[in-house]
């Protein structure tokens, strides 16, 4: 069963390859399969994917989280837009430490990237499960430390 996941990866890659290609002749298709196998082999050679079971629940939880994140992005983008065009005195750069409520690599990556993706907050260091973030204003730092985002990420991937 060790071959199950690489095999699934090759099939998924080949489906995407077919979607992109649009040229369906035998030698081209053979080349496509070879390149898909090569990519998966190179990836496994670089690093084995973590052995955590990937639950199907993530498939609908992550898109729901993205919807919330999109709304957060709209709010923070408008705030930072004002700061960028306004006077420098409105800035109050703050460094804040946030505890991630979840400890899986997936949850940490999701939280770190979400913090960076919302303008005004920026992950600058990850130490075990404690993230250090640079914030443009003290208010943004307070919001981040209150941990609404960390709680939502923990709800997506509770491990």
């Amino acid at each position: 069963m060790r071959l199950m996941r690489p095999l699934l990866a090759v099939i998924a890659l080949f489906a995407v390859w077919l979607l992109w290609g649009g040229l369906y002749k035998t030698p081209v298709l053979q080349l496509g399969i070879v390149s898909c196998v090569l990519v998966v082999w190179l990836t496994y050679r670089m690093a084995l994917p973590d052995q955590q079971e990937h639950r199907l629940a993530l498939l609908y939880r992550v898109p729901l989280y993205w919807l919330w994140l999109l709304w957060e992005m709209v709010v923070t983008n408008v705030q930072v837009l004002r700061l960028v065009l306004g006077p420098r005195s409105a800035l109050s750069p703050t460094i804040v430490e946030v505890d991630a409520s979840a400890s899986s690599k997936f949850a940490l990556t999701l939280l770190g990237n979400s913090i960076t993706l919302t303008p005004g907050t920026l992950t600058i260091n990850i130490d075990d499960t404690r993230l250090t973030a640079h914030c443009l204003t003290r208010a943004a730092a307070k919001d981040l430390r209150d941990g609404a985002m960390a709680r939502r990420v923990a709800a997506v991937d509770p491990d």
Partner: peptide
């Protein structure tokens, strides 16, 4: 975001400006 990356005072605040061009 481009304007922000140019006129923010230091490196870390400039990243915030640049991240405006990378999110919404």
């Amino acid at each position: 975001g481009g304007i922000g990356a140019l006129r923010m005072p230091d490196f870390y605040t400039r990243i915030h400006g640049a991240s405006l061009t990378d999110s919404l």
